[in-house]
Design a protein around this nucleic acid. Structure first.
Lengths: 122, 122
DNA sequence: CGGCATCCGAATGGATACTG
DNA sequence: CAGTATCCATTCGGATGCCG
């Protein structure tokens, strides 16, 4: 019952033209997956997010957040206080995708021992 | 029961150092996800893979396949015939990960209408 | 057919400095 | 704190040509 990625509503990620392809790229982009995964437990402020997603630069995080927000996967809330306090939270669609990302991460964890072994055999 | 990406065996993708992080990057890389997804229905030859993963160049596909093979997620079988015939197939770990990728793609399909709407609102 | 090697322009992305 | 702007090194990745 594995099945191919069926194009339920006529989408096809394999096609360059399909808008879902771009969505996939945003989601699986360099920092997209980790950013989404970081938010599954609840909203986080910019700084906290930056600390959680180890290695991301301020610039890249900012850019990634904009992309995800533009696609409606997360919301940005500026509390307008001083010092600034802005938090990011998953939308419903975002939560759905983030959930799948977390499961992908879990799959990666599950195979990691095998991966390690394969790397050593090289 | 969503839960964070729990570090079942002590892995943590959020940490730059963790080997699972590199695995995630290989899997979610520019062409990694699509390549894995393309193989869920069974082995494919290089050319077929190239045609399936629309937009990938010969060079990038080759490079992606090497990375995935080095991580033990797929196998390369050279039939040694002339003209050459080489096919790529998922290993068991690879199938596990590819499955999760397909589910992620399905999640993307599911939210695509919402994404579309968000993009138009911008 | 299934690659690899080379070239080179384009895009990525980190570091730093600055702002409200 | 939460960004923006600029600079610049690195990398990415397509095009081309060649080989078994």
């Amino acid at each position: 019952m594995t099945g191919t990625a069926d194009e339920t509503q006529g989408y096809d990620v394999f096609a360059t033209r399909c808008p879902s392809r771009q969505t996939l790229e945003t989601v699986t982009g360099r920092w997209g997956a980790l950013t989404l995964a970081a938010l599954v437990d609840g909203p986080l402020r910019f700084g906290a997010l930056r600390r959680r997603v180890d290695g991301v630069s301020e610039k890249m995080l900012s850019q990634t957040l904009k992309l995800l927000e533009a696609d409606g996967l997360l919301t940005r809330t500026d509390h307008g206080t001083a010092p600034p306090m802005v938090d990011y939270a998953l939308t419903d669609p975002g939560a759905l995708v983030a959930d799948a990302v977390v499961r992908l991460v879990d799959a990666v964890y599950a195979v990691q021992p095998a991966v390690q072994q394969a790397r050593n055999s090289a």
